[in-house]
Write a protein that binds this DNA or RNA. Sequence first.
DNA 1: CGATATCAATGCACGGAGCGCATCGAATGG
DNA 2: CCATTCGATGCGCTCCGTGCATTGATATCG
Lengths: 293, 293
Amino acid sequence: MDTRQMAWFVALGETLHFGRAAERVHMSQPAFSRRIAELERDLGARLVERDSRNVSLTPAGARFLFDAREVLARFEAACRDARLVALGEKGELRLGFMMHAAHRLVPRLAGLYAERRPAVRLILEETTPAEIEVRMRRGELDAAVTFLGRPDPALEALPLLRDRLRLAAPEGHPLAGRERIRPADLAGEALIAAPASTAAPLREAIEGWCAGLSTPPRFAYEPRLQQTILRLVAAGLGVALVPGSICDDRIPGVASVALEAAPQLDVVLLVARAGANPAVAPLVELAADFRGG
Amino acid sequence: MDTRQMAWFVALGETLHFGRAAERVHMSQPAFSRRIAELERDLGARLVERDSRNVSLTPAGARFLFDAREVLARFEAACRDARLVALGEKGELRLGFMMHAAHRLVPRLAGLYAERRPAVRLILEETTPAEIEVRMRRGELDAAVTFLGRPDPALEALPLLRDRLRLAAPEGHPLAGRERIRPADLAGEALIAAPASTAAPLREAIEGWCAGLSTPPRFAYEPRLQQTILRLVAAGLGVALVPGSICDDRIPGVASVALEAAPQLDVVLLVARAGANPAVAPLVELAADFRGG
DNA sequence: CGATATCAATGCACGGAGCGCATCGAATGG
DNA sequence: CCATTCGATGCGCTCCGTGCATTGATATCG
């Protein structure tokens, strides 16, 4: 028993005429009669009353006609939606992103994406670069905005922007008034930075810049979120090296200072190379435009 | 494209294994592989990613799996419901009835019917005996409670109860105090009765009883509803000959008097002889019980 | 690193489901 | 009373869908 039988019966229910219904479904009348009889046999219920002059629906037939229309509509919709999802026109797109990107990058991306694919539900998951790596590999994310990390053959990294590290210091701190600082200026300072297990590329950039120091910097606090780091700086608990874009909006109580030979961090859009979710395609295009603009 | 393909795909989606899915739907693995490939071809979308070691759903496949489950469930429900309607276990039953029956008969019937067929929606349509005849013949009603009228080969009449005509007169009226009256007592009285076009059997019974009078009775008012008739009587506008059961509940201002050789009216359950709606069967049984009790 | 096992895809031949054509039987209308 | 209409049935044929055998690719283990 299948939906074709339903479609045949709907044709019959609408015409109440075997010949015309058969014609509508591109079948000969005898074949059509047999299919309807077969449907009734399978169902174990008489659906039409035929007295060789006119055809009428039984109560069961009327009910089945009504239900069949709905089932067929949903069937068609399911097939259409599968196609749309395959084309990336509909469905879901899980976009992971690190907190740094939440300020400007992700909102802009999300807005532009929604214009191109209004029917795709964009699921935003804020997390950390380390988590992103794991979840991308497991296929739990379709794409992610993160720092460029170790190259992965299965993942493609599309550059979005390049960020320079800056110093974030409490207002009134001796370094806060400087035009530009060198690694040596950090001697004895309490540093605040996320641990490598949260954002390896960022941590490596920080430690790399400090590598020249005779006494290695002291990491006083290691919270995971950039938000927290800046709050701790504002509270005067230490200084931090942070991506410059973070300092775009002034945080009360925090001053930002340029670094000499500031390390650069690439913020990239990470997508699976073997395109799992077709809905990522417009996001990739967006990344290219983004780079240009 | 039909629901069998959906069922096959659901098996695959749940096992993620061609061999086991094929087994579940009683098919060999090669045939199953082909059916899935065909489904993907018809849909124009890849539903599963197979890398010859394990099978995984694409986004389109996941969506289709979800939708397919729903479509299949509704499909099954539609088939099941058609069967139930054919068995009279579910669906609708349109029961017409004349106003006279609204007082006690129909509420009791409806209550007992609902106990036997809780899934059948009983649609009650109050109307007149004349209207009932027409609508039964057109198949717009499945059954009706009405006076026994002219026998119709297509309709079966099952006796429910037998009602004697009584006189309804305004309190204080000369006839109101009588024990029993004869047709001659009505001479000169203003009669109130529904027209023959509304309830032929009732009207005929009334006119038949009055047939012996030298001067035929004067029909002062001819409203269609029994309710109206009794109100007019209460207002002192005339007297009426009404089915006795109507007088069961006392109407303020109306007295009822027995008739000599009172005509009897059969109240019957009318059903189509060629049982159109299977849901009437328990109603027919009910009518038999009713006659007994 | 090679042998083995597992699993989906493909080649091939067969059987039957489903089709169209011709026809029948019943009912209707001129 | 014959012509027409319409659904059901008989019959032969075609091709779709099946199972069996096999291939090709890939992971697992000695």
